[in-house]
Simulated scan of single mutants.
Amino acid sequence: MANRQLTQQEIDAVFQNLQNRNADAEQSGKAIPFDFRRPDRIAKSQLRSIHLLHDNFVRNLVSSLSAYLRSYLIVNLVSVEQLSYAEFLECLPSPTCIVSLGLKPYDGNAVLELNSALIFPIIEMLLGGNGKNSLPLQREITEIEQNLLEGLFRIILRDLKEAWKGVTAIDFSIESQETEPQFLQILAPSEAVVAIAIEIRIGESVGMMNIAMPSIIIKMMRQKFDQQWSVRKTESTVAEQRRILELIRPATVALDARLEGPTLLMGDLLRLEDGDTLAFDYPVGRDIVCNVNGKAKLTGRIGSKERKLAFEVGDVIRPPAPVALETGAPPHPA
């Protein structure tokens, strides 16, 4: 690999980083007041909801990447925690592939990072290889390799958008791309972010995909999270009722019209002979009950239509209304 000369801006950034670390070391022994009501912190209940949301994202991502790369992958959600942006950047390897994501219609940016341990096996697979025996490479990706990864990022962002769709509509888009985490200063170092760590295994290659969402933006969605995960009891709409009716329309039911009468002993039934008459004690003008799947639902009359027995519906049997029982308070003992 050819040696690359650092620009003056990169050299200044390195010295600035060293100065900041020295300043932090001097203040490490001092107590720093912390306000738990700070606006960029979110509740643990909302953090659990985000964990469940990205658990669904991981399941969809397995099938999407397997179809795209035509290979078997294992994707696991490792952790969802709240960190400062500086702590998140310190956990990332260098060099790596890190992109800034737009979050329209919200103001702010998120971060998506893919380790080099994943990038180069995936690039090999996109170029026709199997990606299983790739040697670990510690170098920056080239512009050509960045173009090859556009399809990969498009699939990841599509599944990420679909996962967040249940809470709110977010249009994730790539705004910038870097290879050094310290150069992507899109948030203040002390600003809180929700860090999502996802492990991806391709053959013998194992790497991490890390996502950071600003906590202040997620805190703004708290009401939408509550609406998503709470159980809401609402009346069904006419369209929903029509849809359910269309689903059950092809179902079959058993109709049974019976002439209810007195019971008869088995012995008397066996002694019946030709010419005997049975008295059912059932008035001719009384309606007959029609059972639907064994339950009384209709009343009507037996008749005929085109030389076939028929049942003429007279009325629908309504279930009895519940009777409210009035109970008085027990008398107090004297």
Rank of each mutant, 00 (worst) to 15 (best):
F88P: 10
R258F: 02
Q228V: 02
R286P: 00
Q19V: 04
L47K: 12
S63E: 10
L127M: 14
Q16E: 15
Q228T: 09
P181Q: 02
A197G: 01
N130V: 00
L309H: 08
T299D: 00
P333W: 01
D171Y: 08
L77K: 09
T142P: 08
N291M: 15
D107R: 11
L118D: 02
V14I: 15
L264I: 14
F311G: 05
S71V: 06
P39M: 03
P262E: 12
L247P: 00
K44M: 09
I302P: 05
I186Y: 10
R70I: 04
L69M: 12
S63T: 12
P189I: 12
T7N: 10
T142Q: 10
A110D: 04
I218T: 14
P93T: 05
K30W: 03
I186L: 15
F172M: 11
L259V: 09
G131C: 02
I141L: 15
C97E: 04
P181M: 02
G275V: 12
V75H: 00
P105Y: 07
A212P: 10
K308H: 11
D159M: 08
N210S: 12
S66I: 01
V313T: 13
I244F: 08
P181T: 03
M266G: 04
R243I: 03
L18Q: 11
C290Q: 07
I122N: 00
A239E: 09
K308P: 01
P322T: 02
L265V: 04
L18I: 15
N60I: 02
K165G: 11
R243M: 05
G131D: 00
E81G: 07
S66D: 11
L18Y: 13
P320V: 08
K308F: 03
K30R: 13
F88H: 14
M209P: 08
Q82L: 05
E26S: 11
R232Q: 08
V313R: 05
L298C: 03
